[in-house]
Write a protein that binds this DNA or RNA. Structure first.
Length: 581
DNA sequence: CCAATAATGAGAGTAGTT
DNA sequence: AACTACTCTCATTATTGG
């Protein structure tokens, strides 16, 4: 596909104009820069001194994690002493400024890679066959033990190395493994900084007591809560959760100042659940160029709640809704339920649509309880039924019939075409829809792109799922020129492909299964082919963040949710490559 | 201030079905 | 045997109500 014809236009957008001015009326604490945050995290870790490995190696991989090449870090430490973190950082910043060159040797002949980020990817230049191009820390290996020992030499713990290899794959370049470990480390230490780390090893029932004790110990009485929250760099969820404005309440639309590093191209849009374990959003924000999250509840866009945080560098004025806007009440959305809705069920909106729904047995139990009591049921029965209805989002579709919501109905609520997910089994439909964007909400935020890209956009869609981003852009009337959609689930891929056909898309759709396959080299190829990406969008897995998960709510380090670091890695690569244009 | 309440893109194991 | 549906599990947050 061509699609390059008006790339010049896409890239000539003036990123420094207008709305990066004035007021910040959101109740966020202002984030600190990544460097400062890392230092603090480091200090916190050092004080506690609980992990193995020498101070030196930890210092090294800390700075490597911040994006400085290892040899430069070593040099800075030699010249400034190993303990003066401030001086080392200062020196590193100076070197980088002086050299103003790609920082790692293998990048010398190539200027398309970041010179300041954690993602220095040697595979940009190496050929596809994993040739050992070597130079210090760029080894390729096919045996795990060998790779581990290389990483250990670099100052990592064997256990970390092993996890990284399992996670990234055996043939992953060492530098990439190093990136992975650093990213995980930074997250871990950020958590540690927030005094969560120790809790992982304490039985759950004792946590509450210990936390209270630690809290009291650390903070003298009389310090107001806001102050403590500020100290811990927490983001507080706004109430009402309307972000920079929703259609019904547009008066709080404001201008905002974005940190310079956050400016595009490309524009980017990141999404995840609002209610995460403590400290997760501040970590995400720190990685995503210190942009404060915009927390929005989709109950202002449709008849179901959906509390999500969005981090993006889009303009925020002149937003508009996808038309027609869906109704906000259950009875308007599903008129057939009105007839059967008991007077004592006061709900007019649904709770968050999840990945699984209640069983038919539950509906049966509720029916039985209601039939036992002729007329209005007793208070305790009503209470039980209401609990179940709210928990499982049941709707009244017949006499005494509180049924689970159908996939088609979820599609309507989520802003997808009816039967968008048809063709895969019911369970998978619920799962995919439960994980999807609410199209009207995301569309509202993305609407500002329409006037910026009249000729359409090139889209990099990570963790695409059932294509919420694509559907939102299409419904906004923004043509999709080239779309790279990264999604592991086959049913989801099929759904997006089918939608692409059914809506007669003129553009070019490329599917990639695994974010791990999105290497610097492939990104470089796409960018040169398409003339760059205009939008990098994605919501990384929330499994380990979601409140409903009592089993493995491990935070950003979790098995699935750690894929956030791939979002960052890929975004940062695109950013640095695009800045070369 | 504290206790009760409500909400929450889940996961693992098991029973039932094709 | 593979797939699908159901049950049981129980924690961390934010909010509400006194």
């Amino acid at each position: 596909m061509d699609g390059n014809s008006d790339c010049g236009k896409s890239l000539s957008i003036d990123w420094d104009t207008d709305d990066e001015l004035e007021i910040e009326s959101m109740p966020f604490s202002s984030g600190v820069g990544p460097a400062t945050a890392c230092q603090e995290a480091f200090a916190g870790c050092g004080e506690a001194g609980s992990s193995n490995g020498s101070q030196t190696s930890r210092t090294i991989h800390h700075f490597v994690g911040m994006g400085f090449p290892k040899d430069m870090v070593v040099r800075a430490m030699k010249e400034n002493g190993e303990k003066d973190i401030e001086a080392i950082l200062e020196a590193l910043l100076t070197y980088s400024a002086i050299e103003d060159l790609p920082l790692e040797e293998e990048h010398v002949s190539d200027d398309s890679c970041s010179s300041k980020c954690a993602s220095n990817h040697p595979d940009l230049l190496s050929d596809q066959n994993n040739f050992p191009i070597d130079e210090e820390n760029t080894h390729y290996s096919i045996d795990k033990d060998g790779t581990i020992s290389v990483l250990v030499e670099m100052g990592y713990q064997a256990e970390e190395a092993s996890i990284a290899i399992d996670r990234c794959g055996l043939d992953t370049p060492v530098a990439e493994l190093s990136d992975f470990i650093c990213a995980a480390q930074m997250a871990k230490e950020a958590d540690f900084h927030l005094e969560k780390h120790t809790e992982a090893y304490i039985p759950k029932d004792k946590r509450k007591i210990l936390r209270t004790e630690a809290w009291n110990l650390k903070r003298p009485k009389g310090i107001v809560k806001e102050q403590m929250v500020q100290d811990d760099e927490e983001f507080r969820l706004p109430n009402p959760m309307t972000g920079f404005g929703v259609p019904s309440e547009t008066w709080n639309i404001v201008h905002r100042t974005l940190p310079e590093a956050a400016l595009g191209p490309p524009y980017f849009y990141y999404e995840n659940v609002a209610m995460t374990p403590r400290g997760v959003w501040s970590t995400i924000s720190r990685f995503l160029y210190d942009i404060a999250p915009e927390f929005v509840d989709s109950k202002y866009f449709c008849a179901a709640a959906r509390k999500r945080g969005y981090i993006h560098n889009l303009p925020i004025h002149n937003r508009f809704q996808i038309l027609p806007p869906p109704p906000l009440k259950i009875h308007e959305t599903f008129p057939h339920t009105k007839k059967w809705w008991p007077s004592w069920d006061a709900r007019d909106q649904l709770n968050c649509l999840l990945t699984c729904v209640g069983s038919a047995k539950l509906t049966e139990r509720i029916r039985n309880k209601l039939e036992e009591s002729a007329g209005e049921p007793p208070v305790h029965v009503k209470k039980y039924i209401m609990e179940q209805c709210k928990r499982w989002n049941l709707i009244w579709v017949g006499k005494n019939n509180a049924a689970t919501i159908e996939p088609e109905e979820i599609e309507i609520l989520m802003g997808f075409p009816v039967n968008h997910t048809r063709g895969v089994n019911r369970t998978d439909r619920f799962k995919a829809l439960g994980n999807a964007f609410q199209v009207d909400t995301v569309g509202y935020h993305l609407s500002v792109l329409k006037s910026l890209f009249p000729g359409g956009i090139n889209l990099l869609s990570l963790f695409s799922g059932i294509g919420g981003a694509e559907v939102a852009l299409h419904r906004l009337g923004i043509p999709l020129k080239n779309v790279v959609s990264v999604e592991l689930s086959e049913p989801c891929q099929t759904i997006v492909r089918n939608w692409w056909e059914e809506t007669n898309q003129k553009g070019n759709l490329i599917h990639v299964a695994d974010v791990q396959e999105v290497t610097a080299e492939r990104i470089a190829q796409w960018i040169s082919r398409f003339g760059g990406f205009d939008l990098v969008i994605g919501g990384s897995p929330c499994n380990n963040l979601a409140g409903r998960n009592h089993v493995s709510r491990d935070g950003l380090e979790g098995k699935h949710s750690s894929l956030f670091f791939d979002y960052f890695r890929i975004l940062d690569l695109v950013k640095s490559m695009m800045s070369q244009y």
